[in-house]
Design a protein around this nucleic acid. Structure first.
Length: 254
DNA sequence: ATGTCGCGTGTGACGCGA
């Protein structure tokens, strides 16, 4: 069984790459972030022809998420139940016997900004809702663009990020709080190459210089953890023409 | 620090977000 997450940074632009990727990387479920499409513009036909069922939840210009799966997703939820949010950032559904949650966490912009206040509140809402989801679904995977680099080794230059978002103690405490619910970072279950990142700034040759962050994550519940056999970042996708700034992350379970 | 993208908009250079 395989699950994956990818921030596509506009599905309108990235649809050809998505279809190519799915053909080369058959998965049971894939969550997308930053589709940047209103629901009426979602490419259901093309994704259906690729052999996937899809649930989607978008808005104009920003954000937008989707859940693709071989089998239809059941009990689909859009955004965090109990947290009123005007931004389309989360979609969840049950695929087979696994609760699959795809999320686009707020960026936060700067530690002293209103957007950071929103990020903290969103994370509070996520944790509260996730606790109840875990009670109902022992087999659960939370995937997406977390916009948090959980450890210094997940950042190309931790010193340069002091005082900025993505590596702050507040954000890392939230990431740890998710782990404390009984979730495990699947990527760190395995020995990985040093300087492994999932996002690189488009500017200043970020990818070419490997100046990146590991901010796209797959967290698995205790019941799923023993079944995980691999977790990888598909850096190849960042080398294609017109790449997203994020690379897909894939987890394999037996 | 910001040199790149993508979006939406006074359809075409610009402001915004990341």
């Amino acid at each position: 069984m395989k699950f994956a997450t990818w921030n596509v940074n506009s599905l309108a632009v990235r649809l050809p790459q998505l279809l190519d990727w799915l053909a080369a990387n058959p998965v049971d479920a894939l969550v997308l972030q930053e589709t940047k499409l209103t629901d009426d513009k979602f490419p259901t036909l093309e994704i259906g022809e690729a052999g996937y069922r899809v649930q989607w939840f978008g808005q104009k210009t920003y954000n937008g998420v989707a859940l693709l799966s071989r089998e239809p997703a059941r009990d689909v939820v859009k955004n965090i139940t109990g947290y009123a949010d005007e931004q389309a950032r989360l979609i969840a559904g049950t695929v087979g016997d696994v609760r699959v949650i795809g999320a686009y966490f707020p960026n936060g912009q700067a530690l002293d900004s209103d957007k950071f206040v929103y990020k903290m509140a969103w994370l509070d809402g996520l944790r509260a809702w996730l606790a109840s989801e875990l009670q109902q679904h022992k087999q659960l995977v939370l995937m997406g663009d977390f916009n948090i680099a959980p450890e210094d080794r997940d950042c190309y230059d931790p010193a340069a990020f002091v005082g900025q978002t993505h590596t702050s103690p507040q954000e890392r405490a939230h990431f740890q709080a998710l782990l404390d619910l009984g979730l495990t970072d699947a990527y760190r279950l395995f020995e990985q190459p040093p300087k492994s990142y999932s996002w690189w700034d488009y500017r200043m040759l970020g990818f070419q210089k490997n100046k990146g962050l590991r901010i796209d994550h797959i967290l698995v519940s205790e019941a799923l953890k023993p079944r995980v056999t691999a977790c990888t970042i598909d850096r190849q996708m960042r080398k294609l023409p017109k790449p997203s700034d994020h690379a897909p992350v894939i987890v394999t379970l037996d």
